[in-house]
Every structure is written in structure tokens, then in C-alpha cells.
Design a protein around this nucleic acid. Structure first.
Lengths: 99, 99
DNA sequence: GTGATAATTCGATATTATTGGAAATATGAA
DNA sequence: TTCATATTTCCAATAATATCGAATTATCAC
């Protein structure tokens, strides 16, 4: 993962509404949730939800699939793991590995 | 960790300069680095560096200690671990633990 | 085709974050 | 106390982000 990807993923999560959306999708696992369901769940207008889902999608933290008229979003665990790894990369390397 | 703390930590890291500062401090371990050293290392005016260090400090991702005229900053690994845990909390709980 | 439903894009407004020079504060050395 | 060094705070300009109604696009059922 490159710094710019990490910044984009962190920025996507650094917003209360989006962080809660992402955490709900993390709970839901592979089944995911439709945009409209999320919009109802968080009592948020569809346009606002759509904006947030796009931010998370652009950062590749969630993925979308169409199912009939609905668009289902689910968490992308691989991207999340990469982000966590990036943040702790070379931890204490310049201090003999002592943290 | 509460959502608001997590948002504050993520926002602190969601900025290219600050992410690089944090990652350098993660490498440095407990010895840390002085504000001025960081300012030189990143070719950034002291006022700008000070602003970024304050953001990271407010999020408790780094801690400061005075050593003579210098202020030494170092990564706060406990806070980082809490953040990582928060992001993956209850992973797939609503899907029978299958990710 | 038409109508209903699901979601996104557009556009205007409001809010918040970033930058860095100049001034202020804190420490140490002579 | 005076001077030099290290860092922070103040302030104003600029840039980036969030919100959401209205218009648009996509899918399905009849």
C-alpha cells in the first residue's frame, strides 16, 4: 500500500457517519447491506448516504454489487488488513525493535 | 475506545504529512524525535510542523516530553492498538463469523 | 411502452482544515 | 540579565469537505 492510498482510506474513515457505516458493514460480513437499507438505518437522506458510500468505495474499503434494483455494499477486509499493516510497518525498526 | 476518539485519531492520520510523521515516529520507537528534527527532516516550517504535532497529540497517537530546550515526540502504541481493535470490532458477528 | 422503486449525480451552501509569517513563550549558557 | 535556541500560538488567506433538495439514470413488473 502506498501513502496516498492509506491517506484516502483513513480520510474515508475519519468521519463519524462513514465510520459507523463501515463498522456496520464489518459486522454484516459478506452478505452486506443495500444503500437504501443503510439510508433508513442511519436516518440519512439517500443523496448524503450515496456521497458517503462513494467515499468508502473510492478508498476500496467497501465493494458494491447490484442485486436487481438494489446496490449492496459490503466491507473489503483485504483492504482493511493492508491499511492496518501499513500503519504498523517497521515498528521500532530504528530502535532495535524495542517498543 | 469511543467513536469520537476513533474519528479524531483517523482524522489525525488522514493527512499525508501527518501520516509520514507518525510512521517515522513508529519506526523510531521510544527514543522519539524532537520537533525541530522533524521540521528539518520534512523540510517544513516549524509553525506547520507544530500544528501537525498538535493534531497527533490531541488524538493521543503521539506523546511529548521536554528534554532541555527540545520537545521530543514519540508514538503511543497503546492508542494505535486500540484504534486497530476498534476498526475490526465484532467482525462478521451478524454473519455467523464468516468473513 | 408506462409507472413504481432504488440509487446516483448535480449544484449551491455551509463548515472545517491547512498553511506559514510574525509574535510570544520557555529553556539554557555566559 | 542578556542573548541564542527551540517551540508554540496567533492570525488571516486559501483549500477541501459535508449536506441535501431536485433532477437524472437504472431496473423491474405489468
Amino acid at each position: 500500500m502506498k501513502t496516498k492510498n492509506a491517506v484516502s482510506a483513513l480520510a474515508a474513515l475519519a468521519q463519524e457517519a462513514r465510520l459507523e457505516i463501515f463498522r456496520l458493514l464489518v459486522r454484516k460480513g459478506a452478505q452486506g447491506m443495500a444503500a437504501g437499507e443503510l439510508s433508513n438505518h442511519f436516518l440519512m437522506p439517500p443523496a448524503t448516504m450515496s456521497f458517503h458510500l462513494k467515499e468508502l468505495s473510492n478508498a476500496e474499503l467497501i465493494v458494491a454489487r447490484r442485486e436487481s434494483r438494489s446496490i449492496i455494499y459490503s466491507a473489503n477486509y483485504e483492504q482493511m488488513q493492508e491499511l492496518l499493516g501499513f500503519l504498523m510497518e517497521n515498528c521500532c525498526a530504528d530502535n532495535g525493535g524495542k517498543c
